[in-house]
Design a protein around this nucleic acid. Sequence first.
DNA 1: CAAAACGTTCCA
DNA 2: TGGAACGTTTTG
Length: 270
Amino acid sequence: MSTAVDIAGPSSPDQAHSSAKIPNEPLRPSLKRSNHPYSLSHYISTPSPAVDVKSLIQPSPAQEQRPAQPSKPRRAPSWPDMWESPSGLHLAHAAELLMRAGLLALTPATTEQASGSGPEEDEEDSSGCSTDFQPFLGAWFPFSPALFPLAGFQMGGGHWRSTAVGAEGIEGLVAEGYSPSSLGGGGGGRRKRKRCGECVPCRRQTNCEQCSSCRNRKRGHQICKYRKCEELKRKPGGPGFDSRVSGFDLRGSDFTLGLAQERSNGALDG
DNA sequence: CAAAACGTTCCA
DNA sequence: TGGAACGTTTTG
């Protein structure tokens, strides 16, 4: 039914132009802690072609001496393009899918190796996570397990509040000052739910400008498909809310399609 | 008030 | 059943 992925990621000048109107800030205060090391302008000014995975795993000197961001001193830039690019989206998407399926359990780090992404980790970010997904990689994912630390880098960062448990997400929102009524829960009235602000799509700051939602924004009134909050994709109170596994299909998802596309581009060498 | 975007309805 | 279109709400 669905065709190939209709996103190539934010990269073209044309998109940069159209992205200028996109809010560069998260919707919620908590998002201001976002570990995006770069501002929107950075992505606009630095087109991100296919990600060189090898260089990501073993950053080149040029990458290591990436100019510091005075405004974002707390977190050293690790692989921003990886995260913002389609590649990053897919990897992160995969990780989240695993988390939702309960296959990727985030557990408190017990070894110092858990924070292998470097000393830039701080606060809760430094908690790191030891993941037990490796046994699944070979069977489920068409790319090298070596890539997963890239996603794990973010997941382990502690910013990925578990969206697998809906209640926890709600609790988090409530804890941060979002009333249940504004979340669409209870009250009877249909209030708009808010983006969780922490899932991968929410973290994405640029519209792809290529998906149907972007192209049809005037009439569609919909956010970019790749920015659509994972939480909002679920029916509130629906079965998918409780079931960790139902509701997604890796085999037919854009995720794998995207990976295939990127492999064909040589982005994934495995 | 305008823009953004969620929720619902309609249609192929 | 998924996507498009539209109504409506929310936010700045």
